[in-house]
Amino acid sequence: MGKMGSNLLFSKKSRFDPILRRRRAEWLTSLPTLAWLGLFVVVPTVLVFVIAFRPANPYGGIGGGWTLATVRSLWTPSYLAIAWRTLWISLMTTAICLVLAVPTGYSIARASAKWRNRLLMLVIIPFWTSFLVRVFAWKSLLHPEGLIKKTLEALGLVGTASTLLYNPTAVVLVMVYTFLPFTILPIYAAAEKFDFRLVEAARDLGARPIQAFRRVFLPGIRRGLLTAFLVVFIPALGSYIIPDLVGGPAGEMLGNKIAQRVFTDRNLPHASALSAVLVLAVLAPLIAVLALQRKNKKSDIIMGEAP
C-alpha cells in the first residue's frame, strides 16, 4: 500500500476532502480481501515454485540449500506417461462434454420461458449435490456387484470376469458426469443471446441444416464454447478424487502423483515440483484462449464480466 495509502487512511485533512475520503473508503473496503488473498493465494503459489528447488529432509519437511535434482527427476518415462494420460483424459472429457452440451444448451435456449427455467433448474441441481456423493454413486453403479455391471452381464455384453471400474474409461465417464452442468450453462447463455433468424436466413439461402449449424450457429456461440472449454479442461487437468476412486493404477493422473508425494512418501519438494508443472499446464490454455479472444478483438473478458 505504501506511503500514499497510509496518508490517505490517517490524515486528518482527508475527512473533509471528498476525493481523499473516497480513496480511503476504497482502501478500507478492499484491503481485507487484498491482504487475505495475497497471504493465502499469492504467497503460497510463489512458495510452490520456491520449494520445488529445495531438497527434502528425512523428516518429511523441507531442507536447507538449493537443488535442481527434483525438477530433473520429473523428466522420466513414468512421469511423461502420466502427463500424457492427464492430457488426453482431460481433452477427451472436454470433447464429450462439449458434444453433449451444445444440443442441450440449444434446446434450453429455444424452449418456452416456462420450460427454460425448469430445464435450467434441472441442470443446476445436480451440481449442488455433494461432489463425493456423485462420484460414489458411480463407483457403486460400476462396481462388480453394481447395477450397470449386472445389467450388462445379463444382456451378455460383458463377461463376469471383466471389470468396469479402475480404468481410464471409467475416469472419463465420471468426469463427464461431474463437469457437464458447467459446460451446459455457458453454452446456453451464448445460445440464448444468439439470433436464430440467422440460421433461418442461411436455410433460406440454401444451406442444409448441418451446414447452417456448423457455419452459422457454432461460430455464433463461440464465446460460450471457449468458456465451456476452460471450465472443464482446467479443473480436469487437476483432477484427483475421480481417478483416485474409479481410476485405479491404470487411470492415475498428475493429481494422484501429487497426493502420493504428499501423503505416501511425504516428499514436499517433489510434490511442489509436480504442482509447478500443473500450474504451468493450467496457465497455458488460459493464456491461449485470452490471446485468441484478443485477436478476435473481443473486449469482453471470457469468464464473467470485468468491473
Binding site: V41, P44, T45, L47, V48, I234, P235, L237, G238, S239, Y240, G255, I258, A259, V262, A271, S272, S275, L278, V279, V282
Partner: peptide
C-alpha cells in the same frame, strides 16, 4: 484447480 490450492 482445487488440488493446487490445497497443495500450495
Amino acid at each position: 484447480p482445487e488440488i493446487l490450492m490445497g497443495i500450495s
